[in-house]
Design a protein around this nucleic acid. Structure first.
Length: 764
DNA sequence: GTACGTTCATTTTTT
DNA sequence: ATGAACGTAC
């Protein structure tokens, strides 16, 4: 890390870092070192300015970014110097505030945090309670409306006042019931974490003042992605001292769907007319070629208020490459082939390469292609660890041990593993508890304490329910008696977790799921040093608030497969953007809204500017969605890239009689037909000769009909040689009944060998 | 109350 | 294509 604090910064960065008091708005382009500016500013405050880190609050976009910032500060200042700094996402910071002060709102500290899945379940319960048809009122849609309202800081009453239509009325009713159930369960959903914090500050000025007096300096990253509630939070906290330092980039705003509002940048300038505005326009990350392409795409859109002039002193570098695949498998295949080539030539390591896509569903074909070549990769996103059913079930028990009134967790494990409590019993319990207006757990306690009360349960139902109550109470007792790990051991043994999984899923899958549970058990060891009472709550909170990107393993040397959204803030020497087609990027759901379309464009921009040295843009000629294949049109954003900015297309080894060149027959992207190229179907035109050209390595399983023999080796294949040892095939071509293989040997350099002669052994 | 079969929706993007 | 959700049969 940098030796001195300021020497390594340019003039604009220094200006931002050294501003001591007052509001600062930093408008920073991609790769302009804004993370460094934030970190160095904190270091500047703690060091030269002599501010106690206890008095600084930094909001990052992900928990991963928070951890990295702490690590950098340790490097700059010395380990532990910045330990008292408050740094994290809005959500984790608010959760912390609320644990401390939610009692001012007349609520309990031990609240549960509901994630997307919990929210969904709760929503279904609401629709049931309100006698609404799920078909007619999709829980997702209603919940989305509620979430939007919360992000705008609109409560159910106001929502009702604003509403005009029947649908508004339905949402209002659901919103009210939803909040009521949350309250009964002593739970907050993600949005509530922020909303309730603002409410706390507004209703209890003395609490707000406590925080205002503590946080003398505040910093926020990715400011363009803040929503109204987050904006209010910053505004309230900064009102007294006005030392608010925000960093953002309008061109990278890609979270409007969850309420992010670019206008917050303008509001900042309105709220603080004296704000110092710093522009960071120099890019240190990408080559000129990559920046040219990114700029061409972003400038093809609407006019922006703070149009920055991004520039770089970096070299021109390799030209950006646009490439068509026949379908998603071929696209993935070509990507994998090119990656294999880059790795084989020792130019790049797997960890320096990323593949980015619009939707998680696209990862599948990519994964398969990488797997087929034994290329190491990691998938960010998809089904997350903490969203697996068995994990959620285990967590539900743990949550009940902390907060037995948590309705969603309660109903989740009430009859898992099966203990004779069916839908009938559950419905009766729900209704009975509702009639007493108490949570289910409390209702069960009443049932146990007063055996003579009139209840709707048969003797058998009663026994099953009371057994469940005993189980919960044992868990609660155990939580006070031992460490988190011991609680888990007790839980798994008591409910027969492993047996239940094996019974339900069989030997193989059940075994895998149990292995996941063991992994969860392992995670508990990192909490053993905390005071016993804090282990469970802190564990549950972290589990609820970690994101996928936080889980990313940085030290592993693997190719990263990631959505464009999650890729924000990251950088890689080599980036592949795949699926650049109409309907995918821009996504079909954003086609009829101008703002949404512009957001898609920015997403493209974000993806392209992740690349440091090499950028590949891929699209497919046809693509399967929902099991149906359709012809695809190249993304309209590709049409904004002048031809001179991209590398002339690589000629495929399987060149059909007609052209395969992607520009052929078309004046530009986006328009004109795609006809005449069905002939480029790989595998139909004879054998593929792996490695014969950059993108020719499409290995088709279709047998080669008319060639003497097929190639045995392909780019990326690991081989071993008697003299040279282990190596990786760079390329291979067929020469007069033999195969000429170019191999990169570890430590021995690149050799050209004849397969018949060299006795190369395939490894794996 | 489970076990199997059929249907249906699912794909934006996430703290 | 795949999995969740619902239905009918034991």
């Amino acid at each position: 890390m940098d030796g001195d604090l300021l020497g390594s910064l340019n003039a604009a960065q220094q200006q931002a870092v050294q501003t001591l008091d007052g509001p600062v708005l930093v408008l920073a382009g991609p790769g302009s070192g804004k993370t460094r500016v934030l970190t160095h500013r904190i270091a500047f405050l703690i060091g030269p300015a002599g501010i106690d880190p206890y008095n600084i609050l930094a909001v990052t976009f992900t928990n991963k970014a928070a951890r990295e910032m702490q690590a950098r500060l340790d490097n700059l200042l010395g380990a532990g110097k910045a330990a008292a700094l408050t740094v994290g996402t809005f959500h984790s910071i608010c959760a912390r505030f609320l644990r401390r002060d939610i009692v001012h709102l007349g609520r309990e500290r031990d609240f549960a945090i509901y994630d997307a899945d919990d929210q969904q379940r709760l929503m279904k319960r609401v629709l049931k309670d309100e006698n609404l048809d799920e078909k007619k009122h999709p829980p997702r849609a209603i919940h989305a409306a509620i979430s939007r309202a919360k992000n705008e800081f609109v409560d159910p009453e106001e929502y009702g006042r604003l509403g005009r239509t029947y649908y508004d009325e339905v949402v209002t009713r659901c919103y009210k019931r939803y909040q009521q159930l949350l309250r009964e369960s002593n739970a907050l959903d993600f949005d509530d974490l922020l909303v309730e914090t603002v409410r706390l500050f507004e209703q209890h000025p003395q609490v707000l003042e406590k925080y205002q007096d503590r946080y003398l300096y505040m910093l926020a990253d990715e400011y363009q992605d803040t929503n109204r509630v987050q904006y209010l939070l910053l505004k309230l906290l900064a009102r007294k001292r006005r030392n608010l330092f925000v960093v953002g980039d309008e061109d990278q705003s890609v979270y409007a769907f969850r309420g992010a509002d670019i206008r917050n940048i303008r509001y900042f300038e309105d709220d603080y007319p004296d704000a110092r505005v710093v522009l960071l326009e120099q890019n240190y990350r990408s080559t000129q070629s990559i920046l040219d392409v990114a700029q061409a795409v972003i400038q093809g859109g609407e006019k922006r208020k703070h149009a920055k002039r991004i520039w770089t002193e970096n070299e021109r570098g390799t030209l950006v490459q646009i490439q068509e695949g026949y379908d998603q498998e071929d696209e993935a295949q070509q990507v994998a082939a090119e990656i294999a080539r880059l790795i084989a030539s020792s130019e790049y390591r797997p960890g320096e390469i990323a593949i980015m896509y619009r939707t998680n569903a696209q990862s599948r074909s990519i994964e398969e292609a990488l797997m087929a070549r034994s290329l190491p990769y990691q998938l960010v996103g998809g089904t997350r660890f903490y969203e697996r059913k068995e994990i959620k079930d285990a967590l539900a028990y743990l949550r009940l041990a902390y907060n037995p009134n948590d309705t969603i967790s309660f109903s989740r494990v009430l009859n898992w593993p099966g203990r004779g409590i069916g839908d009938r019993s559950e419905d009766e319990l729900n209704r009975w508890a509702a009639s007493l207006s108490v949570p289910n757990y409390v209702a069960l306690q009443l049932l146990a304490d007063e055996p003579n009360t009139q209840t709707p349960f048969t003797a058998r139902m009663r026994k099953a329910l009371l057994d469940f109550l005993t189980l919960i109470d044992e868990l609660i007792a155990q939580r006070h008696q031992g460490d988190l790990g011991e609680l888990m051991d007790f839980l798994f043994g008591r409910v027969g977790f492993q047996e239940a999984l094996l019974r339900e899923y069989g030997e193989e899958e059940g075994g895998e799921r149990w292995a996941n549970i063991e992994e969860l058990r392992n995670a508990s060891v990192s909490y053993v040093n905390l005071p016993r009472e804090n282990q469970l709550p802190i564990f549950l909170e972290e589990v609820a608030l970690v994101s996928d990107i936080d889980q990313m393993k940085e030290n592993r040397d693997t190719i990263t497969c990631i959505t464009l959204h999650q890729a924000k803030g990251l950088e890689y020497p080599v980036v592949f953007l795949v699926g650049l087609e109409e309907g995918l990027l821009p996504h079909s759901r954003s086609l009829d809204e101008k703002d949404a379309l512009e957001e898609e464009r920015r997403l493209f921009y974000v993806g392209a500017t992740r690349a440091k040295q090499r950028l590949y843009l891929f699209y497919a000629f046809r693509r399967a969605t929902f099991g149906r294949t359709n012809l695809a049109q190249p993304s309209r954003f590709l049409a904004d890239i002048p031809k001179a900015m991209v590398k002339p297309p690589a000629r495929r080894a399987t060149a059909p009689s007609q052209q395969t060149s992607m520009f052929g027959g078309r004046s530009s992207f986006g328009s004109s037909g795609v006809g005449g190229r069905v002939g480029s179907l790989p595998g139909r035109n004879g054998p593929t000769r792996p490695g014969a050209s950059t993108f020719g390595a499409s290995r088709s399983s279709t047998p080669a009909p008319a060639t003497p023999r097929a190639a045995v080796f392909f780019a990326g294949q690991k081989v071993s040689h008697a003299t040279f040892g282990d190596g990786v095939v760079v390329s291979s071509k067929l020469v007069e009944n033999d195969e000429e293989v170019t191999v990169a040997f570890a430590g021995k350099g690149v050799k050209r060998l004849l397969a018949s002669f060299a006795n190369l052994q395939k490894v794996e």
